[in-house]
Nucleic acid binder design. Sequence first.
RNA 1: GCCCCCAUCGUCCAGUGGCCUAGGACGCUGCCCUUUCAAGGCGGUAACACGGGUUCGAAUCCCGUUGGGGGUACCA
Length: 467
Amino acid sequence: MRVRVRFAPSPTGYLHIGGARTALFNWLFARQQGGEFLLRIEDTDAERSRPELIDAIFRALEWLGLDWDDTPVYQSERGDAYRDAVDRLLASGAAYWCACTPEEVKARAEARGGTPGYDGHCRDLDLGSGVGRVVRFRVPDEGSTSFDDVIRGEVSFDNANLEDFVVVRSSGAPMFHLANAVDDAAQNITHVVRGEDLINVTPKVLLLRDALAVPGELVFAHLPLIVNDKRQKLSKRRDDVSVGDYIDRGYLSEAMVNYLATLGWGPPDGIEIRPLAEIVAAFRLGDVNRSGAFFDVKKLQHFNGEYIRGLPTSEFVTRSTPWLFAADVPWAADRFDVDAFEALAPLVQERVKLLSEVPGYVDFVFLVEPVLDEASWAKVMVKGRDLAVAVLDHAAKAFADCEWTVADLDVALFSYADTHDVAKGKVQAPVRVAVTGRSVGPPLFESLVVLGRDETLRRIGVAKDRL
RNA sequence: GCCCCCAUCGUCCAGUGGCCUAGGACGCUGCCCUUUCAAGGCGGUAACACGGGUUCGAAUCCCGUUGGGGGUACCA
């Protein structure tokens, strides 16, 4: 049978790292099996769902490159199907109306000794529908519900530990388990790949499928959770994990997807950074780990640096250009010079880990006056004042009439190093700070070539005056 | 409390009874290269939670302990 999986986000927040990983593993499995990857928006909870987030989720998935098949299913539009299922459940006695309020349920539980859960109060009262009433599923008192998880093996729950859970709220809206069971059946889903936080809900869905006489078997695979540095499930509040935030910080989708694929799984040959197509080919659902994985931003950054360096330079230019027009960039848009950026791009490309770092490497070209990094100035120009004065004097003269090429600038400036027996690193520093404002940046002479003789000499002059 | 899951370097991943004096990657770190910073090259650091079994032999299988996590809603 053809594999059909689904990613079923609830539009209560932006797509976060955990959801992205779940979507990715579903997608990998589907593509690797030649199956289909479907989308379902689980918006049964009108209170929490925010329709405007749905599009943001789609865009995040698109950014990641996780293309889906068919049009997404919206649970908010499938009321009839759920009502039909509930009618069948009620008719067969698998479910019943319950008039207990949450407060009553809780009060009785406390009176019983604190064990949470519904006590079956209305089970055999044969109540009909009514305002404020919910429909509960009649969980068998005995036996157990188990399934063979692809990742974890046999997982079993005693039915006695399961309460008669609500399938329809007093508002008439279906609960997640019900909608889930009905939709997985309707969409002919073959495999459910989701986070381990949903493992306890599986017996309920299984019981529901059974009661609804859904044909065929649904295979489950519960992914290990992605955790924070305290080894707790990533939380939108506590941890900063929205996929969109990573886009804004200059991460490449290829790097993100590749990194996410190494969380809970690893290719047999140990090569972590590789094209998605190879990951698809090597991926095996059954080889996914069972234990939680820490989301290590440092390692993600390393992946990102690798991907940036691996880009053709022209693509690096087109992908980093938006960052040069970002709102917080300190120069007017008309100061941007494509040719200048293209000249520096290959040198910047091998130095950044994030696209957002790019402006900091080339700003001196577009700024009227370079931003002055105080720490750099203090170290090179103040602490090393004597050398700085001598070097800038030398540079001002030597740069005045040499050929304006990397090779000639090199000779012109470093003749000072040779004649005065000073390390080249020491000699280039004052010029770099004078011209770019910082002590780090792209190679100096290439930078000067782009800046031009007049501006270079002007900035050297300004720095000398400041000394 | 109850239920479920998990347990190899700081972190991620290999390892599926002998190839393991446990391998790769990130990080950290030493050296080299070098006009800064990167990148690159060559090294180093560091782990099978504990206790019992099973077996000729266990990181690998079983049991227990401990530890961690998840769930326990008229959220998903």
